[in-house]
Design a protein around this nucleic acid. Structure first.
Lengths: 334, 334
DNA sequence: GTAGGGCCCGGGAGCGCTTCCAATAACCCT
DNA sequence: AGGGTTATTGGAAGCGCTCCCGGGCCCTAC
């Protein structure tokens, strides 16, 4: 540990021979300061190594200078998904342009949710980004209860929040399914994520859309939870219950990877016997064998747009909800 | 958005018919308050839904109520590694017991580093956990420059910080290598992480230790950067330069997974032709084919211990550096 | 020549909380 | 009963910053 106390604005003012108000003005480069004083203050700041105390500033301005990113995942294993890392990266990228700090809240436990509530009530942050709600999430009501802007990442299952950023899950999943159909597959099954999740439900719906349009019966559905093991388990069940399956659309890359693993274990070739397509297009989609054909969603962009939207809300603007496009990325698995 | 201003302590005091000092005392459940007043205040708090303003409190007590976790990774892809997620999870688990908030700082860019500096200078946090330094990291000197406790996760390459938590990288890697030797392998190569990283260098050294003890020549070394693609590339180079290779110790699970992929692409069987062992024992080690024999390091525990150490520093104690044990987990790849 | 109007400037009142302190009140012991 | 503790209590002084305001000053326009 090093030096002692940081200098205060008063000390800067004293050294520069001006009033504290004047010093404050040059710090915030406001008007009504002569060039002479401005220089004097700036010199003093440099000499003293002054950095304004954010706490004091926050108290005076009623602006904290921090926003929270709250992640509400189901369980630790899920948090481990690179998806969240990408979101964080995206949010951070946007925040780096400002001087807002990022408060991370893992709101999956009751503990965490209480913490988030407390943060909002006590105005410990200027805004909140809320990601990945479970369907029944009590957090969903949060936006209305406090005088703090809240941006949702993905939509809660019920009710449409005032501000959110989402990916076109339904459209993307439809694209994926249509691709399999175009490949001549006729026994196409789906492995869903949690259906009490908007992403899970919407992707499932996209699959149904495409099947209906093609006049195919939505052959078979197995449920997972977006994770690799769940994908493998679902695929195994699928193989047993519906051996003629020749196409699988999975609700996430991780589940698709699991499906690939199960298929290999059962001696089915991909895409020869069964074509599979994932959803997300995370880096891991490149590391499977064969490489995954998947629906790309701009995860990093999702994070960025959430941050942007929150920033504009904080600035007092009135942004519109945003749905980011998804697109099919053709690789080897389908 | 909902209700207006939060009530202040003065309003609580007024409603309870006591002085602000008294109210403050019961909020912080300090002594010297009669039971009667205590009850009155508590009732008022409940009725008004009062939550103390952390900013004001911070200003008065000179304690921010937040700590930062700074991650200094090389590039975005690296941050995506579940390793970091586990660290965050561990840190969070420990922090949940307190009412400290978690500030996340991605300190890989110059931007991020400057931000971290600013946070320290302006005392925007009560402590810092600093993770994953590159060897030359300017952040390493941070601990001495500010009057804020700093705990390192992993050691910087040069100099030993006063407080750190690390895993027994060298010992673990030695274990891994010895395992291959015990299996009868004699042409054992190593795929290292960045050597300008303590983890990278130490794991390399552990390999050299074991080889030396066994009287084997450290046949071949290829360098990677801890990521999957780097592992695949290194393995490919290895195969070309050293075709008789029959064992590989990789500096991370991700690189081991990459190696597996490359081996398969070149038609080598695992562990038949080549046995490979990873390092980390993240969930992904279970999802490779074959499942990865690897060195387990308690990543979640690493996060927890960092947080614990920081907490105890903040409490004014004098904790000791900590090196967490690693152990070999035998699975299918070796 | 003087009434405005702009620009500078410093004083001072907060922001919402903690905490020191001096003043009272309650209690103990011999 | 009296001296000495020990508990309460509210007043008031900050913590370090922002920002409103009123007072000077100088310049322009009539």
């Amino acid at each position: 540990m090093g030096p002692k106390r940081q200098p205060t604005l008063d000390e800067v003012a004293a050294r520069a021979g001006v009033s504290r108000s004047a010093a404050s003005r040059v710090i915030n480069n406001a008007r009504h300061v002569s060039q002479a004083k401005r220089d004097a203050v700036e010199r003093a700041v440099a000499e003293l190594g002054f950095v304004p105390n954010p706490t004091a500033r926050a108290l005076a301005t009623q602006q904290v200078g921090a926003v929270v990113l709250a992640l509400s995942h189901h369980d630790p294993a899920q948090f481990t998904d690179p998806f969240f890392a990408q979101i964080i990266l995206g949010v951070n990228a946007e925040l780096e342009k400002t001087d807002l700090e990022l408060l991370l809240v893992l709101a999956n436990t009751t503990q965490g949710q209480a913490r988030l509530q407390r943060i909002l009530k006590s105005r410990r942050a200027d805004g909140v980004m809320l990601m990945a709600l479970r369907g029944d999430d009590p957090l969903a009501a949060l936006a209305d209860q406090h005088d703090v802007p809240v941006v949702f990442g993905g939509r809660p299952l019920h009710g449409e929040p005032r501000w959110y950023v989402d990916a076109d899950n339904r459209g993307g999943s439809r694209l994926a399914t249509e691709h399999l159909i175009g490949l001549g597959r006729r026994h196409i099954a789906v492995i869903t994520g949690q259906l009490d999740t908007d992403a899970g439900a919407s992707r499932h719906r996209g699959y149904l859309d495409a099947m209906a349009v093609a006049g195919l019966s939505p052959s078979r559905v197995e449920h997972g939870d977006f994770t690799e093991p769940a994908g493998a388990a679902a695929m195994t069940r699928l193989l047993a219950a519906y051996p003629e399956v020749d196409g699988v659309v999975a609700g996430s890359d991780a589940m698709a990877a699991g499906a690939l693993r199960a298929l290999k274990a059962h001696g089915r070739s991909v895409p020869g016997d069964v074509a599979v397509v994932g959803f997300d297009d995370l880096l891991t989609a490149l590391h499977t064998d064969p490489q995954l054909t998947t629906v790309h969603q701009p995860v990093h962009g999702l994070g960025r747009e959430m941050a942007k939207m929150l920033l504009s809300l904080i600035a007092g603007e009135e942004p519109h909800p945003l749905i980011l496009p998804t697109r099919l990325v053709r690789r080897a698995s389908a």
